[in-house]
Design a binder for these strands. Structure first.
Lengths: 338, 338
DNA sequence: ATGAAAGCGCTAACAC
DNA sequence: GTGTTAGCGCTTTCAT
């Protein structure tokens, strides 16, 4: 277990100069003679010197780490957003430490504590589906810990956030169904505490109105975002006296659950039931039939989130909400045969 | 930007004792009087003291960080393995820093450099599909940097590794097809440099032999693991004078590509063509028809990998290979109607 | 039983 | 132009 990294001290000793001279030479301090600078830089390059981030962190009280907490790690949506965050973090010389709340409030709190203990400089959070109470987030605000949220957000007047234009997306879906000839359009939402639930619901309602369709409470279902609960919600819709002829779900997993339930009931998509989801490109094309869906600009969402984070990190605690446009990609699942 | 964390110094000042006394009291040093110990611990708890990991790292020359490099972050397989690694890392007070090679050799090298610069204590790597040359990994060995690999491994006589029993899995698939009545079984493999390609190929061949089926080179196709290249490979198989009646692909994405190409060609699964893949539970059930597939014990693979990592970290550089069993889950895609 | 001091790697204010 | 020193938070040896 030989000594793994060369330090300024090592270089200084070898060159018979002081540590500060080496330090200065490396950062092109004007006081240093050309000759020494060259000598130092050459040796540093040769020995593969790189400053010890721990020492720097200790000195500057900055770890250059950002903590990210997502509801889960196995959903493309989050992975892709994380990639976006990473891409700009890396540019700034930061790296990210990722934690998953597994959709549990307790785990979310625990992760916050862990990350703070690891001395991240701030947090980027997407709430778990259980997060009805935001006390733990308010505490972060009080402690003046940089915090930015995305997708499932809250307290947006105090916390910077990046979200998709969810209301608009839902409206687009309703309008799309309408244009394809579907008339009884159902929606399977998620837990009420989530901002995405509220926003997408709002868009659904204005969408119906815009098309001149009546609002029927029976066509509004809720699930807890799991595949199984989505299936169950769909089954309830199918058992209505007058079932819907189209349905859309709040996210990928839910959309797949809906499709499963519909097929299991022996109905055909898109003939008997049109389906639209909020999913990523890849999985929409993999399912059968290919799923018409609203795709989020996930990578860009991640980048924007990181940008807001750095803004917050370097300047005062003002909050800003960035809303990104979604795209409705038409595929077979909503192509009602005439 | 108030001072965010209390230090030993803060506690010491408030209690009018020395820093060392506080330090000792907190770790139950026998020399400390019961009275002082209690006093210190109470205040520490009250002030929510937690040792600064940067200072500890600097002192102990240990960051308690593990670097992980995976080919991509948006595949369930890797996410799940990462979760497994994290679960045991966390237990040991370590945390993981994740980097993606995006299947590129250059990015893999770059990530290694980045992570080392961030002073991870060691690396856990799954090779990119481009990694034909292992020099950069051998350099890690030479530098005595703890390294463990999983799934796509190499140099297993020097590097500890966790893999699935890939040969066995392929054999099971062939035997399964055979038992269902399929006789011309094709295989779409991945790049030759990957261990999983070789192992799964070997199993395919012994599997055919075990069933008394002839080996037909025309039924062996290769792709670069993308959805598109898998489709292309399947199309080549479909254009054979005598096309296969069953096919399996080396991973999820490939399996989905195969299905897509088969359906696009107007063939029915499982009637005209049986399909089996290596995928996770969730996506296998989402596609249509549900895909018979070999599932990896991904979470467990991650845990085992982490265990090997810590073994390597604490003791000498001996290498060990752990092979985990896979499970063939039968679904509709290989249920040939009689 | 407790305190002082050195040192982990680095920077910056202060000598000279 | 270069060296010395203090200090970031912590542990540990050596004094007392």
């Amino acid at each position: 277990m030989s000594k793994r990294h060369v330090s300024l001290k090592d270089l200084a000793r070898e060159l018979n100069v002081s540590i500060s001279t080496v330090s200065r030479a490396l950062k092109d301090h004007p006081d240093i003679s050309e000759e020494v600078r060259k000598k130092v830089k050459r040796l540093a390059a040769e020995r593969n010197y790189s400053p010890n981030p721990l020492a720097m962190g200790l000195l500057k009280q900055a770890t250059r780490m950002i903590g990210i907490i997502v509801p889960d790690l196995v959903t493309h949506f989050y992975s892709s957003i994380i990639s976006g965050i990473e891409s700009v973090a890396k540019e700034k010389g930061y790296f990210v430490v990722i934690a998953s709340s597994n959709e549990k409030l307790e785990k979310e709190k625990e992760s916050i504590a862990n990350l703070l203990q690891a001395r991240v400089e701030g947090l980027i959070i997407c709430m778990s589906r259980e997060t009805t109470n935001t006390e733990h987030l308010e505490q972060l605000l009080k402690a003046d810990i940089p915090l930015v949220m995305f997708d499932r957000v809250c307290l947006t007047n105090q916390i910077s956030a990046v979200i998709a234009d969810n209301a608009d997306a839902s409206q687009k879906i309703v309008a799309h169904f309408y244009s394809k000839g579907y008339r009884r359009i159902a929606y399977v939402s998620g837990p009420d505490n989530l901002s995405i639930s509220k926003e997408r619901m709002a868009g659904y309602l204005t969408g119906l109105e815009a098309c001149g369709l009546p609002i029927d409470a029976a066509l509004i279902e809720t699930c807890d975002l799991t595949f199984e609960s989505a299936q169950a919600a769909m089954n309830r819709l199918l058992q209505l006296p007058i079932p819907p002829d189209a349905v859309f779900g709040i996210n990928d997993t839910v959309a797949f659950g809906l499709m499963k339930a519909i097929k299991t009931a022996g109905l055909r998509i898109p003939h008997d039931m049109g389906v639209v989801g909020f999913t990523d490109e890849f999985h929409s094309t993999v399912v059968d039939p290919p799923l018409t869906s609203v795709t989020h600009p996930t990578f860009e969402m991640g980048q924007k989130t990181a940008e807001l984070f750095f803004k917050r990190l370097h300047s005062a605690a003002l909050s800003e909400t960035v809303i990104l446009e979604t795209k409705l990609v038409e595929r077979e699942s909503s192509e009602k045969p005439q």
